[in-house]
């Protein structure tokens, strides 16, 4: 197994993947880093040349030090974007994890047609984000013809324009619907790996149902819950299509990612957007480090 020959062959076989990911990580990252210290407004005539320019850190663009960084955090849209991001991530996490645990426990019970129910519950995860955003926006949340509006009227209430008057709850609803299957599926898998003898032992020890949940099931799930939270956080920090298609960042739904996207592509202030990008990368890395601690522990086992 571990002979010299196979070691060098192994390194060779790993090389392409490592090299590609290294390039994929380093090149854009260093460009973002460079731009974040530059004034770069393509629409106002800031141009970069091909070739040599790239290697010499774009001499045609002016260095501006940390100006972009301070402008990004002092702009009036920064703190609202932070709170919007936290609200969406936090709201979706609470909803999906809590409902996910309940649903996973329910699906673990003996019943008829378990397989079919499982499929029904998982399905939203496979719906592409643009489809789910559009379907929710038009067929459910539309103030005139959406199903929710019909429902409101059926109860005698005046339907509101959900995506503008209750934009945040609507976005949280859509995103939660997409991610609930993920949480449920992973928690269900974790529950199924719980040794039934443990529960039986607890039952012999006289623990009632709720205590068994609290002292046996929940601790058993804690690792899976941590993983669900961390992975979802990383994806939720980056949600894009759902906002792009529904509100376009209006009505207080502009997240940090979306703000950066607007700075870079819509208003074409690349320097400012890149500084924002660096903040986003740092933020994501903090979460990623936590996640990798958990996943890494599993590697040793």
């Amino acid at each position: 197994m571990a002979t010299q020959h196979s070691r060098s062959a192994a390194r060779l076989m790993m090389a392409p993947a490592v090299f590609l990911l290294l390039v994929w990580m380093l090149v854009p990252l260093s460009l973002t880093l460079i731009f974040s210290f530059k004034k770069f407004l393509p629409l106002r005539g800031d141009q970069i040349e091909s070739g040599w320019d790239w290697v010499t850190f774009f001499p045609s663009l002016d260095w501006v030090g940390f100006a972009n960084y301070s402008r990004f955090v002092t702009s009036s849209s920064f703190w609202p974007a932070v709170s919007t991001t936290l609200l969406i991530v936090g709201g979706v996490l609470i909803i999906t994890v809590c409902l996910g645990i309940l649903l996973a426990i329910l699906l673990d019970q003996p019943m008829w047609g378990q397989g079919v129910v499982r499929i029904l519950v998982i399905a939203p995860f496979f719906v592409m984000p643009t489809v789910s955003a559009l379907v929710w926006k038009n067929m459910f949340l539309d103030p005139n013809n959406g199903l929710f509006s019909h429902l409101w009227r059926a109860f005698g209430a005046e339907p509101i324009s959900f995506l503008s008057e209750a934009a945040m709850p609507s976005i949280i609803l859509i995103v939660s619907w997409q991610w609930l299957p993920f949480a449920t599926l992973i928690l269900l898998t974790a529950i199924q790996s719980l040794d039934s003898e443990q529960l039986e032992a607890a039952e012999m020890d006289g623990a009632p149902v709720l205590k068994r949940f609290w002292f046996i099931v929940l601790p058993h799930l804690s690792r899976a819950i941590t993983i669900v939270i961390l992975i979802q956080t990383i994806f939720l920090l980056a949600i894009f299509a759902e906002i792009f298609v529904t509100t376009g960042g209006a009505f207080g739904t502009r997240t940090l990612s979306y703000l950066i996207f607007q700075r870079v592509l819509e208003s074409q202030n690349v320097g400012l957007g890149s500084a924002g990008g660096v903040y986003a990368i740092i933020l994501a890395n903090i979460v990623a480090l936590l996640l990798m601690r958990v996943v890494g522990k599993n590697l040793d086992a």
Binding site: V18, W24, L31, F35, L265, V270, L291, M292, L299
Partner: peptide
């Protein structure tokens, strides 16, 4: 190496959007 590979997946796309676009 495995964990490092995973970390590249965590890179927020929006952070590298413009460089990729330029490239």
């Amino acid at each position: 190496i495995l964990l490092w590979m995973l970390s590249t997946k965590m890179l927020p796309a929006v952070g590298v959007l413009y460089p990729i676009y330029l490239l």
